[in-house]
């Protein structure tokens, strides 16, 4: 009996340092995120405009938006956006980080150049890109120069989403560059050295040393990037307003429209469907990272 208590105490005591370090963050996050989240979760089961009575409607908000064609289109658009940005973005980030990890003249300048778009908010970057993508914009000047047709990228439903994705990648991949760069710096130098001693070429060193060392960073980049991609809103709001003909309406754009009309029930329901999908995606990503 006494031994069990002692054993339990030992086990609990083992958790003590971790719990103490984690507690302050958990308290703040509970107040600032989890309490509001529980509130909005409750909103999602009701007919509520923030003012006036709250009427419980059960799952009605969820079923209503799920059959809304605009919501379905928003999911399809968001998925396409996520796939484009999450394949091209991290790849560009990794390639630039590897290039910038060399001792070359002007390295500080180049690093700043790739990072500069990240320092501006998405709203600013989207504002900048709009005139560039315009039919009379600079991009079309370049295309015409190399013998291609001019195209009004943002006014064509079949290219608008790609154009918005491109601007988002341009703005965001510097984030990935910086994260990868920081991670590359922490790869043990002797690990790389011994691989070189073993006669491994650059490509082999990359596969055998660099990539495995980057695994935690890759998980970070893909989890955070995927969440960010599914939250796409600012760039759509500024560049296309969800159009033309709904071709760039994303899930968050859809729910913000509802939110602006103070339709808190449907807005929250859409948000929690998004959270549910992202939890599943993130859990899969964590699982892959662990098993590989």
């Amino acid at each position: 009996m006494a031994e069990t208590r002692l054993g339990r105490w030992r086990r609990t005591r083992r958790y003590l340092p971790g719990a103490v370090l984690l507690a302050p963050a958990l308290v703040v996050m509970t107040l600032m995120f989890f309490v509001p989240m529980i509130t909005s979760l409750i909103y999602s089961f009701g007919d509520y405009s923030g003012i006036g009575p709250f009427t419980w409607v059960g799952l009605d908000n969820y079923t209503e938006i799920l059959v809304d064609p605009r919501f379905q289109q928003a999911w399809a658009n968001t998925a396409v956006f996520a796939v484009i940005t999450m394949t091209v973005g991290p790849l560009l980030g990794l390639v630039t980080a590897l290039m910038l990890n060399n001792r070359i003249p002007g390295r500080t300048f180049f690093r700043a150049v790739f990072f500069v778009p990240v320092t501006a908010s998405l709203v600013v970057v989207s504002t900048l890109w709009k005139p560039l993508l315009n039919e009379r914009g600079l991009l079309n000047d370049v295309l015409q120069l190399i013998g291609l047709e001019r195209h009004d990228w943002l006014s064509d439903p079949s290219t608008a989403l790609v154009a918005v994705s491109a601007a988002s990648i341009w703005q965001g991949f510097g984030f990935e560059t910086v994260v990868f760069l920081a991670a590359l710096q922490t790869i043990p130098a002797d690990l790389m050295e011994s691989a070189r001693m073993d006669g491994a070429g650059p490509w082999q060193r990359f596969l055998a040393v660099t990539l495995p060392s980057l695994r935690p960073t890759l998980l970070f980049v893909f989890v955070v990037g995927m969440i960010g991609a599914f939250q796409a809103f600012d760039q759509v709001y500024v560049m296309t307003g969800g159009g033309p003909v709904g071709s760039t309406t994303t899930v968050v754009f859809y729910l913000v429209e509802r939110f602006r009309s103070l339709d808190l029930g449907h807005a929250s329901a859409a948000a929690y469907l998004l959270v549910a999908v992202l939890v599943v995606i993130s859990a899969i990503q964590f699982r892959i990272a662990r098993t590989r």
């Binding site: 064509d156 439903p157 969800g242 159009g243 033309p244 003909v245 709904g246 429209e257 602006r260």
Partner: peptide, 22 residues
């Protein structure tokens, strides 16, 4: 009507779809 924002979006989509030849 409370539904005006939705109608507004639907009309904008319709006009756009026609003018871009869709």
């Amino acid at each position: 009507v409370p539904a005006w924002p939705a109608i507004d979006t639907a009309l904008t989509d319709a006009v756009t779809a026609v003018l871009i030849g869709q």
